[in-house]
Design a protein around this nucleic acid. Structure first.
Length: 467
DNA sequence: GTAGGGTTAG
């Protein structure tokens, strides 16, 4: 979630005081003030110190600017801070190194973060944790877990923060085995303090929930006496994601109940993320009016301004219920720019319900936003197929062939990665996998009505592992 | 005397 900076009167005041005051700007002044000042001011002050010469800045002051700047500044300014740390001879200070790793991570420059780590003089658990966290936050949880193992091989013991991040990586990967191993690790190291550390506890609940072990998640959730908004939200989102919409909504009701009863002395209020879970539950269960109720309620009762994710949930709510015109009307009313994910939701629904005119409209918007997304051609061809427009479908398929952009997917089984590319039959266990796929499709057909008779498993072939 | 790394999201 991004929080935009706001101009507050206090910042103007603080800046004014610094300008008018005759006293010398010391690094001490900067250290104290930068904590409560918006990032921009601390950087302005930092520039003044810079002009006074390097001697007026110590590593504490630089670190504070660095931390303030990580939240809001340009790439150039951030990189300048690194250069400045080198110029001042602070390069080997481990606290600065760690903060710089985090800074590069937040810029999305994971390679720079790793390079810096490789150069660090002192590989403390904090330094390792910063790097592991960098990989998780940049969407590479597998690499994060690999580094977690590497760290232990170097005899650096993880602490509760490392463990929290490793659990988050397991959750992203759906790596239940690794997650359970970490749970045992916490159990064996009672000093880890699962009882007192709610963030760690939440990470554990979330790991079990995301890995599909809802029972274990629920058990931990039940035994958590002091729950915060993340505890509740993790559980609600997990239930919604696993198709247990009614349980998710019951839990949300229970959350609101516990808010009003003051029973445990700590009042928690749902936040943006909680409502993503609630709206997701409604759309998955086809509960349109209940979804609309919560949509209104989040704004009216909780003063939460809907974000793009919430708009996406609402469009999905109408789409899954087959209310395509309502979905389109909702999109047109949106005060924020609709993104490709939302148009894609509508396009997929058009394919399911054979609505060619809306489908073509969504496809046009997608071509403007993400012209290279090959999957949209597949969906569009399915829109035509669902409406029985076979010539149009063929045209789209031919266009796709010309682009020669085969789809691929990747799965990790044990420690081996298997990559599947369309029309590639080189995998050693090709035959067995085809049989399993075929039986899944047949079982699905027996259970539900499949509106698009064109869906087959050909093109699901495979190959190769890179391990 | 002070400093670095943490959970939830179509």
């Amino acid at each position: 979630m991004r929080v935009s900076a706001s101009k507050s009167p206090s910042s103007a005041h603080a800046d004014g005081a610094a300008t008018k005051g005759k006293r010398r700007l010391s690094s001490d002044h900067l250290s104290r003030s930068s904590e409560r000042l918006p990032a921009k001011n601390s950087f302005v002050q930092f520039r003044r110190l810079q002009r006074r010469g390097p001697s007026s800045i110590d590593s504490y002051a630089l670190l504070r600017v660095l931390r303030a700047r990580t939240k809001a500044s340009s790439r150039v300014e951030k990189t300048q801070l690194h250069t400045f740390a080198i110029t001042l001879g602070f390069e080997s200070i481990v606290h600065l190194q760690t903060a710089l790793i985090t800074m590069y991570s937040e810029m999305g420059s994971i390679n720079d973060a790793h390079r810096l780590f490789d150069k660090t003089s002192c590989r403390t658990v904090v330094c390792w944790t910063a790097l592991i966290s960098a990989y998780v936050n940049n969407g590479r949880p597998g690499k994060a877990l690999e580094l977690f193992r590497h760290m232990r091989l170097e005899n650096v013991e993880p602490d509760r923060i490392t463990i929290t991040i490793a659990l988050s990586a397991c959750a992203d990967l759906g790596a239940l085995d690794a997650g359970e191993w970490i749970h045992m690790y916490i159990y064996r190291h009672s000093s880890m303090g699962l009882g007192e550390d709610l963030i760690l506890r939440n990470a554990l609940i979330n790991m079990y929930a995301k890995c599909g072990h809802i029972q274990a998640a629920h058990h931990l959730f039940d035994s958590t006496k002091q729950r915060d908004v993340t505890t509740w939200t993790s559980m609600i989102v997990a239930l919604a994601l696993h198709g247990r919409a009614n349980e998710a909504l019951l839990l949300f009701a229970e959350m609101k109940e516990s808010m009003s009863s003051h029973s445990n002395g700590c009042r928690v209020s749902p936040n943006h993320v909680t409502f993503v879970g609630v709206l997701m539950a409604c759309s998955h269960a086809g509960l349109v009016s209940e979804g609309q109720f919560h949509w209104e309620s989040m704004q009216r009762d909780y003063n939460l301004k809907p974000q793009l994710a919430h708009y996406g949930c609402m469009v999905d709510l109408f789409c899954r219920a087959g209310l395509l015109e309502d979905a389109y009307a909702f999109i047109k009313e949106m005060p924020v720019q609709c993104n490709a994910v939302i148009w894609r939701t509508l396009l997929a629904a058009c394919s399911l319900h054979g609505n060619v005119s809306l489908g073509a409209l969504a496809r046009r918007r997608l071509l403007e936003l993400e012209p290279d997304h090959a999957g949209d051609d597949v969906t569009m061809s399915n829109v035509y197929a669902a409406a029985g427009l076979w010539d149009e479908k063929q045209d789209v398929r031919k266009r796709m062939k010309r682009r020669r952009d085969p789809g691929g997917s990747l799965i990790e089984v044990g420690s081996r990665k298997h990559e599947f590319v369309s029309a590639d039959r080189r995998h050693l266990r090709e035959k067995g996998m085809q049989e399993v796929l075929q039986s899944i499709v047949e079982n699905s057909r027996a259970l539900v009505h499949v509106p698009d008779a064109d869906i087959t498993v050909d093109g699901m072939e495979t190959n190769m592992d890179d391990s």
